[in-house]
Design a protein around this nucleic acid. Sequence first.
DNA 1: GTCTATACTGAGATAGAC
DNA 2: GTCTATCTCAGTATAGAC
Lengths: 185, 185
Amino acid sequence: MPRSGAEARGRLLQAALELFAERGFDRTTAAEIAARAGVNERTFFRHFSDKREVLFDGEAELRLDLIRSIVEAPSGLAPYDVLLHAFAAAAEALEARRPTTGARAELIASTPALRERDLTKHALLTDAVAEALRQRGLSDRLADLAARTGWATYQHAVRTWDGNPDPGLQACVRQAFDDLRKLSR
Amino acid sequence: MPRSGAEARGRLLQAALELFAERGFDRTTAAEIAARAGVNERTFFRHFSDKREVLFDGEAELRLDLIRSIVEAPSGLAPYDVLLHAFAAAAEALEARRPTTGARAELIASTPALRERDLTKHALLTDAVAEALRQRGLSDRLADLAARTGWATYQHAVRTWDGNPDPGLQACVRQAFDDLRKLSR
DNA sequence: GTCTATACTGAGATAGAC
DNA sequence: GTCTATCTCAGTATAGAC
């Protein structure tokens, strides 16, 4: 068994996803995950601060992608257009690995503890978006407001897309940002 | 010892708040709360599904207030004006018991597990807001979008107010909904 | 890596309220 | 008697301390 650390982490990740799929999140123990990965239970908690974190392993990457998209968006765009730009890019990446994400989304939706963690990650991403908008020169207040409402709009689009995937997520995102204007009238 | 149930619950609530204030959330055990309330530890979990729930006991009431405000708002208002109406009313109630809420807010902000639960409650409230908007005849899609972005706007206002309470929460709410228009330009 | 505190669960017994 | 709240007891699993 290799002791490289990164390999153990990879095995833990795969073992966890397999077991969650087989028996559900609550019926899977950390010990079982560790056993299938061939490491000690304690090793699991060294790689993932708690059992839920396994399912949110890609969050940091998404965050960096979002920040880059926002910072590098053409100058002169209105805040919502910057976010539309960034979320459309994120949507493309999400759509590309659609098959993988479906089971994960179901698991999260059906497990309260995972929904809580999911919301926490969304809050972190929202903060990152606000920070990126500030880097573009937006005021603290408007950056916070744009990040929160923009993220809410993106989540609405994802939800709409889940209900009817035919138009594609990108189209749903555009539609959502378009619909925003109807709410003041 | 009375067996009324409601009394035990009341004592548990007070004991929990006292102990959380004295030692913090993580340093307080369920057994200690139960002991101070004069009941068995198991009884604590029958009244509160987990230790965190004690701090969110008033959520159902707030939800009903919000729904009522939205459903009873003057007809003919634009969705965001309905929400402004409802959140301004909620803000008034929140401001009235400001001193009580300060310590609770700090506890939540400084305890990750409580922040997660807080976000979950926000999601529930958002869903309730969407449902109330649907009752006003708004389409499913616009109701969801308005609820999410409106709630985000409200949270932005609360945050702004926390940073500078002088103008009052209601003013911050109005300002926030006003600022929304700047984000498309 | 080992040990331990504690959050939480389940089942069955008991005791007031009505 | 019935119903429901509480208690007792026995456990499991997570996560933190060492």
